[in-house]
Design a binder for these strands. Structure first.
Lengths: 190, 190
DNA sequence: GACAAACACGAGTCTTTGCTCGCATATCTT
DNA sequence: AAGATATGCGAGCAAAGACTCGTGTTTGTC
């Protein structure tokens, strides 16, 4: 049931996977533990379901960012066009950070995280390749991994903030991306 | 006992705080659970002890980096002189990443993490201020937080690697720092 | 209204794991 | 050597939490 998943999401977001209890999830959804287990066989199933849902959403997100014009647009616009949707995604998916960006709660989930990360990295490489078809694949792979790492590292700086502080933090993040990627994509628009 | 701490450290590094069991720590140290509890009152005490030890080491690390010449040296050297010791620290303290950079295992530990982070950030601000006494405090605070975030985000990219791959990853990290900090510290050496 | 099927319930079971306690062994004192 | 003290042991206790099951309640059909 959908409301169970939403309850699990909010609990995970608040206390993380390890400290989340199935009873709390059940009561948050105004449902008994017994009923909960009629829909999800175990606690991990919640994380799996969320991962699947998030993966799908990220897929859609990429599809909307990834169109031809991206190849020639100024770098600052490219950064805006990618960072903003990802930040928006993390606002809508508050459990993502707690579940998949922290340390892996279980070995099985670690695999899931790996897959999500690989997918995003592959998408980024494809994006980069549109701008620099001449670049070596390995260099682009590094740039993608570093970009993901920067995002992961700076996201916790942004998430808890609101208003002008948040804007400032986002500006800082974009600044990091801009200055890091500039040497790679400098001579593109002309 | 020291060997217990070392055992705890290696277990934490391998499976993280939540999945580490006191029995495993005891057996890793070739000691019975009973004996373990004669030295450390509970599981959290291990994390506390490690945090204290790491804090001390970070203190020393900072003292060795933080001397006057740092104010006038070229930016690339400044980055080298700070990044390398920190990476070295994380090699010697393998549990640090698992314990204090992942999601907080318990509310009490979260406080500890906060303190460690604040301390490092404060040190960085002091360092930055040596170079730019004219800059606004708040800007330096942002730069410090962002620098810490970048380090946290890129560290997992570096830790599992060895040899040339590791060197490449470190070069990437330093590149990010250089390009991010350059606008702030550009006009320093002349 | 009567029966049946499906669903929801929550007190209880079972496993895991942090932690203890009574006994055994070693070390020290005289 | 013999008692006294300290230290180490590991089987077992207790709490927490994932998960179940017998019972009650609702819903659908005649």
């Amino acid at each position: 049931m959908e409301s169970l998943l939403r309850a699990a999401e909010s609990v995970f977001a608040e206390v993380g996977y390890a400290r989340a209890t199935t009873n709390l999830i059940a009561s948050r959804a105004s449902v008994s533990p017994g009923s909960l287990y009629q829909f999800y066989p175990n606690k991990e199933a919640f994380a799996e379901a969320l991962a699947a849902q998030y993966a799908e959403e990220l897929e859609g997100l990429h599809a909307s960012v990834f169109h031809g014009t991206i190849a020639t647009v100024p770098l600052a616009e490219l950064v805006d066009a990618t960072v903003d949707p990802f930040l928006d995604f993390h606002r809508r998916a508050p459990a993502f950070e707690a579940l998949f960006l922290g340390a892996a709660a279980s070995p099985e989930l670690a695999g899931r995280i790996q897959v999500l990360h690989e997918t995003v990295a592959a998408r980024l490489i494809a994006l980069f390749e549109l701008r620099r078809p001449d670049a070596k694949r390995e260099d682009l792979r590094w740039a993608a991994d570093v970009a993901v790492g920067i995002f992961r590292g700076l996201l916790p700086l942004i998430t808890p903030l609101k208003g002008t502080k948040r804007s400032r933090a986002i500006r800082e993040m974009k600044g990091v991306f801009l200055r890091y990627l500039e040497p790679v994509f400098a001579t593109r628009t002309e």
